[in-house]
Every structure is written in structure tokens, then in C-alpha cells.
């Protein structure tokens, strides 16, 4: 509501697009007793993820209902295709809980972007993607040292199978790529996608609202608002795809990174 009020205060005749006084208003929402909306929504996302898993799996049915089959489908997809399929049958099952928690939490967090009355993806705050990416980083670096010892860094800095002349160059690139770019890109990919989606939706829907509600002042020009509103609804569908895809990519890449540490030969 703050966002809409802030935009309503501007003069739509003088400005083509009304911007809030501060762009951070789109992402930072008021605190209520030390808990801001983002923190509340993180709790809600955890609650929804837990509830979905609980109600989807607690009955352990022989013949699942549609809802149970859907939850089982997600869980089994992450288990069989991502955890076991990428990391391998022996090690994959150990990382399956982490990957499933990652996918469920990010998915719900992303879907908040287009959830009615919420309209705010918690993954568009850098804190959450950064934490999750760091967690993946810690896990795959730890597994690399645990499985390969010092050879883990050795193989990255002096990669086998590369012409000797190129080894220093490739080694440096690999080192930077593995230890610095991986967590950064993992976090920023998720964060930036959701930020972009959220800004786009907010701009289109708020502008649509402002234009249509200013019909008394600007007359026929208010129809532009209808166009923006329609475009915003189109973006909604697109953002649904983005939400699912980004959750999947984050989980998939985490699995791939863990796999490279657990099985260096691949």
C-alpha cells in the first residue's frame, strides 16, 4: 500500500512514469515490532513448504490423491533426477534432503512474487540467495577437501588433461571460477531474476493503477494504464515460469557443484 500511495502522490501529467521517492521502497517494507515484512514472509515460506511436504507425504498412501501425487512428483524428481541422477546413487541420497529443502524453499519464496496479496519474492533480497549460495559453496568445498584432500585444490590449480603450457592459465581461471564465481553467480542469478521480475510487475501494475485512477485528470490518456495493466498480467505468467525455473536452476547447479567435488573424475 505504501508503494501505491507513494506513486499516487506524484503528478501523472508531469511525469511519464511515477517513481517512488526511493526505489528501495519496492523492497524494504515497514517493520512491525522488530519484524519486517520480508522476515515474516520468510517464515511464511518455510511454513508453506513444510505444510506442503507434511500434507503431501504424511499419509504414505498406496494410491495417492492428486495433491499427494503432485508433492510426491516434486520430491521424487529432486531425489531421482537431481540428487541421485547428478551426484550419483551412493552420495546423492545424502544430499537429497539439502537439495529438496533448497528447491521447496526457493520455489515458495519465488512464487511469492506472483502470489496475490503478497506480491513480493523473498529471494529478491540478496540476503537469502547469498546465504543459500554460500551454503552450497561451503558444502561443495568441504566435500572436495574431504574426498580428495589437498588434491582438490591441486587439480583445480593444475588441471590434468590440459597442455602443460596452458595449465597455469586454465588453473587460475578454474580457481576463480570454482571458488569465487560459482557462489556469486549462483546468488546473483536468483536474486537478479527475481528483482527484475518484481520491478517489472510493480512498474506495470502500479502505473496501470495510477493512470486508470487518474482518469478524471487526464481523460482518454488513462487508457494507456489499461495497456500497462494487461502487459503486467502477461508478465505474471512469465514470472511463474521464472519462479519455477530459477528454483530448479539453483538446485540443479548446487547438485552439479557438489558432484564435481564428490566425483572429480567427471
Amino acid at each position: 500500500m505504501d508503494v501505491i500511495l507513494a506513486a499516487s502522490e506524484c503528478d501523472p501529467v508531469a511525469e511519464i512514469i511515477c517513481v517512488p521517492a526511493n526505489v528501495n521502497e519496492l523492497f524494504e517494507l515497514p517493520f512491525i515490532g522488530g519484524v519486517n515484512r520480508t522476515m515474516l514472509l520468510m517464515g511464511l515460506a518455510a511454513l508453506i513448504a513444510v505444510a506442503l511436504l507434511w500434507f503431501g507425504l504424511r499419509r504414505r498412501p498406496l494410491v495417492p490423491t492428486k495433491f499427494e501425487a503432485a508433492i510426491e512428483g516434486i520430491v521424487l524428481y529432486i531425489r531421482d533426477e537431481v540428487a541421485l541422477g547428478i551426484i550419483g546413487p551412493k552420495d546423492g541420497i545424502r544430499f537429497f534432503p539439502y537439495l529438496l529443502a533448497l528447491f521447496m524453499f526457493i520455489l515458495i519464496g519465488n512464487l511469492f512474487e506472483i502470489a496475490p496479496a503478497i506480491n513480493f519474492p523473498i529471494t529478491s533480497r540478496i540476503g537469502l540467495p547469498a546465504f543459500l549460495a554460500l551454503l552450497t559453496w561451503v558444502i561443495f568445498v568441504f566435500m572436495g577437501f574431504k574426498r580428495q584432500g589437498a588434491a582438490y585444490v591441486g587439480h583445480i590449480l593444475w588441471p590434468p588433461g590440459v597442455p602443460t603450457g596452458l595449465k597455469p592459465l586454465v588453473g587460475i581461471i578454474e580457481f576463480v571460477s570454482t571458488f569465487l564465481v560459482r557462489p556469486f553467480s549462483l546468488a546473483v542469478r536468483l536474486f537478479a531474476n527475481l528483482v527484475a521480475g518484481h520491478v517489472m510487475l510493480t512498474l506495470l501494475l502500479v502505473s496501470g493503477y495510477v493512470f486508470v485512477s487518474s482518469v478524471g485528470d487526464i481523460g482518454a490518456k488513462a487508457l494507456v494504464g489499461v495497456g500497462w495493466f494487461a502487459l503486467g498480467l502477461g508478465i505474471y505468467v512469465f514470472e511463474l515460469l521464472v519462479a519455477v525455473l530459477q528454483a530448479y536452476i539453483f538446485t540443479l547447479l548446487s547438485a552439479v557443484y557438489i558432484q564435481t567435488s564428490v566425483h572429480p573424475e567427471h
Binding site: G43, W54, A101, G127, A130, F131
Partner: peptide
């Protein structure tokens, strides 16, 4: 990131992970 949100995120994810695990 804002510390309070980071902590909230860690706790929320920990809950989800614990339930999955």
C-alpha cells in the same frame, strides 16, 4: 544483506531443511 533478514532466512531455511531431513 540486512542482518535481521539474513537471520530470518537462515532460520526459515533451517526449519525447511530439518523437516525434509
Amino acid at each position: 544483506p540486512a542482518t535481521s533478514e539474513l537471520i530470518a532466512g537462515i532460520i526459515a531455511f533451517a526449519i525447511v531443511f530439518f523437516v525434509v531431513w
